[in-house]
């Protein structure tokens, strides 16, 4: 019996300003393959299906177990993590494209620094006084932990931004991931003390009012983060915060 083959089509651009070129590769099937093993096979023998010599495909990956967020791309049109995309569950030919909402670097690599910048802008941290020994942290009920922990698992992959119709060239919408992080920090006993700063940051252009509630984000989040709940919760906080600052002139 001849080896089973799989076909992978990759959307390629060596530089952001170059025209797109699609390349097709034929690879030898093995059980438990995922999209990263496919890309490694291509790197070992970068010859297209029609026999042309090409070059290894650029892509990002690190943990290979869906916890670092690096390997997000469009796989058969869906934004998802390449390391957990098992070939057995994918329709062929497998189509690989870079995320489209972030500046392209090369092939499947994009620049997602916007997400980290937005985390900075929205003060997504607990402002501790210092790393010297100040004794134990605040007590927290298991219930609070069980709400907070799933939010804290966001891997900044960007899939929720990719799928969001409101993230596009015309808006600066921060996206569901950031809103959900604000919720996380605003629920922490110490983080709460500075909730106002984060809400202020979500009130301007690109803030939460840009969300049109399409609810696509929650469907593509690889970590199953309850993003729509987070958006609703933070929306409520923003409204209350706006009213309060309106009446008192400060928060």
């Amino acid at each position: 019996m001849p080896d089973k083959k799989i076909i992978v089509r990759v959307k390629r651009r060596q530089r952001p300003d170059e025209p797109v070129r699609w390349e097709e590769f034929e690879l030898r099937y093995r059980p438990h393959m995922n999209v990263i093993t496919c890309l490694r096979d291509i790197a070992e023998r970068p010859i297209t299906r029609d026999g042309r010599e090409s070059s290894p495909v650029s892509y990002e990956a690190n943990c290979l177990e869906e916890v670092c967020g690096a390997c997000a791309m469009l796989i058969n049109g869906q934004p998802r993590q390449a390391c957990s995309a098992l070939v057995d569950n994918l329709e062929q030919p497998i189509r690989l494209e870079p995320l489209s909402k972030f500046p392209l670097v090369r092939d499947l690599v994009v620049d997602r620094s916007k997400m980290f910048e937005d985390l900075k802008r929205t003060h997504c941290w607990i402002p501790i006084d210092g790393t010297y020994d100040l004794g134990e942290g605040p007590r927290m009920s298991p219930a609070t932990q069980e709400t907070g922990y799933p939010l804290a698992r966001c891997i900044s992959c960007g899939n929720c931004l990719e799928i969001c119709p409101k993230v596009n060239e015309h808006t600066q919408f921060v996206g569901a991931a950031i809103v959900s992080q604000v919720r996380l920090f605003n629920m922490h006993p110490t983080g709460k003390l500075h909730a106002g700063e984060r809400l202020d940051a979500l009130m301007g252009p690109g803030g939460i009012q840009d969300c049109d509630n399409s609810q696509n984000c929650v469907k593509v989040c690889p970590k199953g983060i309850p993003l729509t709940e987070s958006i609703a919760a933070v929306n409520g906080q923003v409204i209350r915060h706006a009213l309060k600052t309106w009446f008192t002139g400060r928060d």
Partner: peptide, 21 residues
Amino acid sequence: PAIIDLLDRMGVMFNRTPEGL
């Protein structure tokens, strides 16, 4: 032990006991 306290102060969502510890 003080390192754990520090991480806790930084907001790490450590699992808790019913007493909140």
